[in-house]
Design a protein around this nucleic acid. Structure first.
Lengths: 332, 332
DNA sequence: GTGAAAGCGCTAACAG
DNA sequence: CTGTTAGCGCTTTCAC
């Protein structure tokens, strides 16, 4: 490995001058600086970032923890994060792991030891004692979670659930079922709460028997849908807690020869790219996914630069009208 | 930050003993070792991996470069890689960037400076001069690419294209179109070559006018499909270069009221999870995606441990019969 | 069994 | 403008 010493020797100068020249700092004559740079290039010198990090106390690396990179929502989020990481010459450490405390703890500890400059975390809960694990590291909670101690970026989950359900109500539906997300996830609870509120405000009954719990994935949506239709065959609309669940439900309908939207209308949440290519195209409450990633990364960078008051950023959602919702006599 | 010095001071021992005790090395009496460990825990000591890396000349970090994390194929691949990275306490640096030389060069240089222990690269071509950028770093080419100088993990792309087309032929189709991937990608060329060979061997004409070029994404599949059907309305089957393209094509068919598989049959390649939830479920030549990631990571680890002869691993594909192919009088 | 000291490759005072 | 010298936090000879 070529080091500053090699460059120094080859140029007959000291390592101090070499370092200065290579970092474009003042304190070297323009001519020698150029000579050093040239020689360094000839030697194929590449600075060792590890050594640099040790003295700079900054690794130019941030970490992103997601619960399931396989859910298309997260790759989009990654794109957003990457784009600003790239702009700032940061490298991105990706950790794909379930968001429970037991799994998270060792991962966060590893990142801390690794001296990452910041952490973007998609996780609902941080057991109290876990906070200390990355208390010294700037952190922003992305998409889920809330804590009061860390910055936060996301949408209003309850409002999203409300909007989805509201859309169905305005289309004239009155028996609106809900395929929920895992009961232990705050996001799932909030979206469900939005569903309940929308029904209540419309004077409809938020009958718990209209709920089946999925897993935020296709399979769960498919299964929950099956249980639901078996039990409540008269529902005319389904609000799925996320697009993947909705896609699973669409597949179920196709399996059973149930027409969407003629027999049953469907709305999801997320607005993943794929929702535009389902049959029929999925109507969904779209999150500004990349923007969330961008905002989160920017917020993190701000925190890294210097202490900032904890900020909570909430981005707006958009209703994307696909073809999975049909009016029933009523409005719309 | 708590360092070995703090622990040494608190325990009244030298940093050498502390280091030994903390790393479970011999050379410390069991009692003092235990005491040191206890004190370190009390102090909340966490070793600084950066410093450790500097002396160890190993960062316990590998990088994975993918061309588009948004293509569901890659998140699955990531899962595979992560699983073995996790087992070996390695951290994963994810770089999502187009695979062209200009974009890759600076990224590879950054990883080199960062002293990553190894690189998993999904990219077809490495301009000759680029090799040197990571010549010192163990590398395996994943999914695409071939080089002779680096280990390789993937499937037989040509055979996959052949198998997909063959399946259509055996179902009795004779006008089999192809929605190709970007012409500059080796994978795309190989899959297309497989299509040609299958047609030739069956005595059919591999008419170039049966080809439309997509982009390996839904949108490209949708558009290419539109151009194709406008020009060659009599095709009864389409082999899409990957599942995403196939999904785009399915959406197009739905748009135009063309029934799949009644009017046209469709086969893709990849076997992403989502292919099971399209309407109809997609018939596809499935890659063992996670296994590819696992194999690649293992191969990389072997290389990191010590120089290995360049190995090329080819994993088998499987035909997953969805409901997107229908026989036409002929066999099947 | 334990400690002193060197050094990983680099940056940053501090002197000339 | 240039060089010498300390470290950054850790591991690892080499003495004792």
């Amino acid at each position: 490995m070529v080091t500053v010493y090699d460059v120094a020797q080859a140029s007959g100068l000291s390592i101090a001058s070499v370092s200065r020249a290579l970092n474009g700092q003042s304190g070297v004559s323009k001519t020698t600086a150029e000579r050093i740079v040239r020689i360094a290039a000839e030697l194929g010198y590449q600075p060792n970032e590890v050594a640099r990090s040790l003295v700079a106390k900054s690794t130019q690396t941030i970490a992103l923890l997601v619960p399931d990179i396989t859910n298309p929502f997260f790759p989009e989020l990654v794109k957003g994060v990457q784009s600003v990481a790239d702009e700032n010459d940061l490298l991105l450490l990706l950790v794909d792991a379930p968001a429970d405390a037991e799994t998270l703890r060792p991962r966060l500890a590893a990142l801390r030891r690794k001296q990452v400059d910041g952490i973007l975390l998609v996780a609902s809960e941080l057991g109290g004692d876990m906070e200390e694990l990355f208390d010294e590291t700037p952190t922003v909670l992305l998409d889920r979670g809330h804590s009061g101690r860390h910055a936060t970026v996301g949408i209003d989950q309850e409002a999203a659930g409300f909007a989805a359900t509201r859309h169905l109500i305005q289309a004239g539906h009155t028996r609106i079922a809900h395929i929920a997300g895992p009961a232990d996830l705050a996001v799932a609870q909030l979206r469900r709460a939005g569903w309940e509120r929308a029904l209540r405000e419309a004077g409809l009954d938020a009958d718990p028997s209209l709920i089946e719990v999925g897993d935020f994935e296709e399979e769960g949506g498919h299964r929950a849908g099956a249980r639901l239709l078996d039990r409540e065959p008269d529902v005319t609309a389904v609000f799925a807690a996320n697009d993947l669940s909705a896609i699973g439900f669409l597949a179920l309908c196709a399996d059973r020869g149930i027409s969407v939207p003629d027999d049953v209308s469907v709305v999801g949440i997320d607005g993943i790219e794929l929702a535009r290519y389902t049959t029929p195209a999925l109507t969904t409450i779209a999150q500004p996914i990349r923007e969330l990633g961008v905002a989160a990364c920017r917020s993190l960078l701000a925190q890294i630069e210097g202490p900032r008051p904890v900020e909570d950023i909430t981005l707006p959602t958009t209703l994307i009208a696909g073809a999975s919702v049909r009016g029933r006599g009523g409005a719309s």
